[in-house]
Simulated assay, not measured.
Amino acid sequence: MKIQRITYLSIGTNKGDKLENIQNAINIIADKIGAVLKIASVYKTPSLGFDGADFYNTCIKVSTYLPPESLIKSLLAIESELGRTRKDTGGYADRIIDIDIILFEDEIIFSKNLIVPHPRMLDRKFVLVPLVEIARNTIHPIEKKHLYICLENCIDNSEITLVKEQLKRPTPITEKYNYIAIEGNIGAGKTSLANMMSDEFNAKIVLERFADNPFLPKFYEDNERYAFPLEMSFLADRYQQLTDDLAQFDLFKNFIVSDYYIFKSLIFAQVTLQKDEYKLYRKMFDLMYKEITKPDLYVYLYQNTERLLENIKKRGRDYEQNIEASYLQKIHDGYSNFIKTEPDLNILIIDVSDLDFVNNTKDYNLIINKIKNHTV
Rank of each mutant, 00 (worst) to 15 (best):
S198T: 09
R120S: 06
E231C: 13
A25S: 10
N359M: 05
T7L: 03
F215S: 05
N137M: 13
H146G: 12
T341M: 14
Q166M: 11
I160P: 01
Y335N: 02
Y335D: 00
V129F: 02
V352F: 05
Y261K: 06
E152D: 12
K87W: 04
S265T: 12
I347G: 04
K204H: 04
A77Y: 11
S258K: 07
L246M: 05
K362I: 09
I371V: 07
D106H: 14
V132K: 10
I367D: 00
R120M: 09
L309Y: 14
H118R: 15
N254V: 13
Y226M: 05
K112P: 01
Y300K: 05
P295A: 07
I22N: 02
D98F: 15
I142Q: 06
Q274N: 12
L19S: 11
T293I: 12
L266F: 14
K372Q: 09
F110C: 12
E152Y: 12
L266T: 05
R95A: 02
P117G: 07
T58R: 06
R315I: 11
C154R: 09
I323C: 02
R315Y: 15
N365F: 11
L75F: 09
T305H: 07
P130E: 08
V163A: 02
I22C: 00
G52I: 03
N202H: 09
D244K: 14
A188G: 10
T191W: 01
A40L: 02
F104S: 08
D51C: 08
Y220S: 11
N373Q: 13
R238A: 02
Q329D: 02
F285I: 00
K61I: 02
I349R: 11
K290T: 07
R124I: 04
H332E: 13
L355T: 08
A35P: 06
F201C: 01
Y177S: 03
G12Q: 00
Y177Q: 05
D351C: 09
P46G: 09
E200D: 07
E224F: 08
N21K: 15
K314A: 12
L37G: 12
I371R: 04
D245L: 12
I180K: 08
S10M: 08
N223C: 12
L280G: 11
D333N: 13
Y220T: 10
A77M: 13
